[in-house]
Design a protein around this nucleic acid. Structure first.
Lengths: 343, 343
DNA sequence: TGATAATATGTTATCGATAACATGTTATCG
DNA sequence: CGATAACATGTTATCGATAACATATTATCA
């Protein structure tokens, strides 16, 4: 880290000159390949140490057409999900010797997409990880992503054939949640969903509906109201439910933030949880454990999601490097049920 | 984004050849400098469009000795603070045309530090932003950071002469919090601090102590217990306080997470907030607004912190580019008081 | 109208490294 | 002991772009 001279970088030439060898020999020492005599190696290593030489990854990437850098495109970094996922990505990338080049997206217009992709490609990223929720048709362009000259891996996207993705199994999570309520004897299970334009919200709702139907119970539209993930929207959605479905005995709420609002509003109105109303959330926020009553919820392992993503993209990169066909598959990460007091 | 050919990148040579000009002319068109006839420009631009040419930033960085990339070193990305800061950094970097190269640190040993720095420098980052809390003496090495050949900016670090940093004014925030309690007639103000090895915790405690002393009130050690930022530690620290300082009438808690535990525990024990005990936190977590009672707290603008950081480092980079002396100063971002129900 | 400036384009060197090839030296074996 | 393999090192070309310099043409003005 410490360079002796502030002004100029130490280059391979400097090392070669001081050590009295060719640059090629220095390169050989640095890369541990092929033949270098012990004596020469030591001499070069000493000079490297002394001058604080560090090979320029830039130059190396240029000639090798390979950068050991992953592009990461994020959307909504300010939310908990993407940033926890990012954490997993950072960890795993580090382990595998890759760096991350980040771009935060602020909309999904074709123009921005192109710009972001271009700037990543211009820096020769070896692959791209796409960390953005699927909302409405904002992912439709991925059908054309084959024309991108590096592998791309999508997170939290609806599976599409021929395209690689990793996502939490939201459907299964919702099934687990709903089933838990049924197993505890609840029969009138309502749902507060996320915005239905979100794929994840859709999946969670589907899990709720199908589980009820399978159990021979009703799941009509009136038993479900829609929020937008925020606390306040959760409150409103709950009020609507109280009108539309006054004798419900439990609610599966599509995320913890809204679920906590339900707990709060129930408390205010004297509705006892879980006796009168069982509540179950999704996400397992840190605070959820500390509410009264503490919130039963579904936990998705976002750290793992990020790690898997890196693992997968690196496989794809290697396949491409070896001129093998690039494998594409849609993978699901299973969430887990965390039972606490509220259900 | 869409390249016509998957196999090979389109290079400046390809464009030059198809357009029937020299590579230099293509370069001139791409960079809008100097003289190119309208006709030639159009022809080249057409070919660029047609072939989907994108200049390689890598090659450009190599020759220009400048990468338009910022290194960002993070620690504890899984916590709310760093990731919100990162969001601000990403935004502003984007605005100023920089990309981010990320490295997550997992400890502060000299070995890791060197490795991280080296890998960033090897990629020719133009500057480095250091996003890690100052704990114990984990920042002592920065005294030697002058030998790093690019500007470095530290976030949330104790001011040091000759070194650039940006931080929330934790001291001032604590003063505001404590003063607010005093203004509301409280006289026996306790404190739950963060871990005292953290600089930020130290500052917050100092703000509490000095404000009390200035008001002619006591602030002995017994009136303060120490947590580790977590909910459970907050609970314990609160229990200790109840023993050590049973007739306190208010508490300034060093972060919201611990403060929420205090609210919860008070509720459980039938201590009325704010009547019997006023509580004020620090951080303004999203959930804090939704507790009963809602939590009065100090809000630090981490988004802004990140934005400022980028602004500052870019200034430093430019100064360096122009061979001007690189300005160094320690800057504070002022937090704000958010009054809610708990105090 | 000839000199000078402005416009327009090309040629060669360069950034820092590795690939590909060449060459020289020392072992090893039939 | 001469041929071949293994070892050791150097030379030149190359990645994709821009810098620095050179040159040619056109415009402008005293």
């Amino acid at each position: 880290m410490i360079l002796s001279d502030r002004k100029k970088r130490v280059t391979i030439k400097d090392v070669a000159q001081v050590a009295g060898v060719s640059t090629q020999t220095v390169s050989r020492v640095m890369n541990k390949f092929s033949y270098v005599s012990g004596e020469t190696r030591q001499r070069v290593e000493a000079v490297v140490e002394q001058l604080g030489y560090r090979p320029s990854t830039l130059a190396r990437s240029l000639i090798q057409q390979r950068s050991y850098t992953l592009g990461v495109v994020t959307f909504g970094l300010k939310f908990l999900g993407p940033s926890r996922t990012l954490n997993g990505i950072a960890d795993q990338a580090d382990k595998l010797g890759y760096m991350l080049l980040m771009k935060e997206l602020d909309n999904f217009e074709k123009h921005s997409l192109n710009e972001v992709m271009d700037s990543l490609l211009a820096r020769q990223v070896d692959g791209i990880i796409w960390v953005a929720p699927e909302i409405g048709n904002n992912h439709d362009w991925v059908e054309q992503s084959e024309s991108i000259p590096v592998p791309v891996l999508f997170l939290a996207m609806r599976p599409r054939t021929g395209i690689s993705s990793v996502a939490t199994d939201n459907y299964q999570g919702a099934v687990m949640a709903t089933q838990h309520l049924l197993e505890n004897g609840r029969k009138r299970v309502a749902h507060i969903s996320g915005p239905m334009s979100w794929w994840e919200a859709e999946e969670r709702k589907r899990g709720w509906r199908e589980t009820l139907e399978k159990a021979g119970l009703d799941a009509p539209e009136q038993f479900c109201t829609e929020g937008n993930w925020s606390s306040t929207s959760g409150e409103q959605a709950f009020l609507q439910l109280l009108e539309a479905y006054p004798n419900m005995d439990s609610i599966f709420v599509a995320n913890d933030q809204m679920a906590l609002s339900v707990l709060r509003e129930s408390h205010r109105r004297g509705i006892r949880v879980p006796e009168q109303l069982a509540v179950i959330g999704f996400d397992n926020l840190p605070e959820s454990a500390y509410f009264y009553p503490s919130l039963t919820t579904i936990s998705q392992d976002l750290q793992l999601l990020g790690e898997e993503a890196v693992q997968r993209i690196v496989e794809m990169i290697q396949a491409r490097q070896n001129n093998q066909p690039i494998p594409s598959r849609s993978q699901f990460i299973q969430p887990t049920l965390i039972v606490r007091e509220s259900a």
